[in-house]
């Protein structure tokens, strides 16, 4: 596993955390105290994921400080905040992708349907089948479109017959809104698609294993506005069957696609509220400063 590059990124993230990218005139924001506990409504009834007192460390650097949050069933929650505030780190703790980084430790109580995520008895392979992930950069396998989507189902033995597998592939591609564009070239390489199509292919690949939760780590940051619009539309449709947590740098996107919005600041969860509330009447000063573009 080449974690070197990831570590680089993490290190940079930590540096950023240590030295926030504030301009001189905004220095006053730094003095704004963090709230004792997250303001707004971090908890919901009957959550899909129940996360309490989550702390994440890279060696001795603490990247996430005591975050408590619920993710409701079939909701889209967006995680926003300035660069290096720990959104992605937090997201990656939710399906234990952080396990691949040797120096990363996660502490706290993370549950998916009352199942402890970091229970040593829990099989991480099973967990990742239940909590899928879409990454920032489209990363299709250098295989055919069909094989890309069929990879997960094959891995977990979800289809016994070719016929069933075909069905899963078609269904997933349809859900990802890609079927009509690729149905005639299912066996051409997935890497030959355009950036937006590749990202939808990755989404199709993720939902092909029917996960319960889909984590999206800035899924549109590498895409043009048209492709972005398509993905946002798709997220909207996917909420019918999935719970989605999305990290985004675009506040418009957060406003458009999510039901609730969580604002992270330097590894702390400052505020969680209904998206509308966050963008119209933010409760905390830091949230307000961020969404009005005073820093970020």
């Amino acid at each position: 596993m080449d974690t070197a590059q990831q570590l680089d990124n993490r290190d940079r993230a930590n540096d950023d955390a240590a030295k926030p990218p504030f301009d001189v005139e905004e220095r006053s924001m730094q003095d704004t105290p963090y709230p004792e506990k997250t303001v707004g409504k971090p908890f919901v009834d009957a959550p899909k994921m129940r996360l309490r007192n989550v702390n994440v460390f890279y060696d001795d650097n603490q990247a996430i400080h005591d975050v408590s949050l619920d993710i409701g069933k079939n909701e889209v929650i967006s995680l926003i905040g300035p660069s290096g505030c720990g959104k992605s780190t937090f997201l990656r703790s939710l399906n234990r992708m952080n396990d691949t980084i040797d120096i990363c430790r996660v502490r706290g109580d993370l549950q998916l349907d009352d199942q402890d995520l970091y229970d040593p008895k829990l099989d991480v392979v099973e967990l990742r089948a239940r909590v899928g992930m879409v990454f920032q950069k489209p990363n299709p396998f250098p295989k055919s479109i069909y094989d890309n989507v069929a990879y997960g189902p094959r891995l977990h033995g979800l289809a016994d017959k070719k016929y069933d597998l075909d069905g899963i592939v078609e269904n997933s591609l349809r859900k990802a809104g890609l079927w009509n564009e690729v149905k005639d070239r299912l066996h051409s390489p997935g890497t030959g698609l355009s950036g937006g199509q590749q990202q939808r292919l990755c989404i199709a690949r993720t939902i092909a294993v029917s996960p319960e939760v889909v984590l999206m780590d800035e899924p549109c940051s590498a895409l043009d506005p048209i492709a972005t619009a398509k993905i946002e539309e798709l997220i909207d449709e996917l909420t019918e069957s999935y719970t989605i947590a999305i990290v985004t740098h675009s506040m418009q996107q957060a406003a458009r696609v999510s039901h609730r919005t969580a604002y992270f600041h330097l590894g702390r969860l400052i505020e969680v509220n209904d998206t509308e509330t966050v963008f119209t009447k933010p409760e905390h000063e830091l949230t307000e400063a961020y969404i009005t573009g005073r820093f970020g």
């Binding site: 080449d2 992708m97 691949t100 392979v125 990742r128 990363n139 396998f141 977990h156 990755c202 993720t206």
Partner: peptide, 27 residues
């Protein structure tokens, strides 16, 4: 040559629930 395999491919496979050995053998 193993180092030149992009980490994104490994992450994608891990994210789908491939075990470490499957990541190595398949990708």
């Amino acid at each position: 040559s193993i180092k030149t395999v992009p980490p994104s491919v490994r992450e994608a496979a891990l994210g789908l629930g491939a075990s470490k050995m499957q990541v190595v053998l398949h990708h």
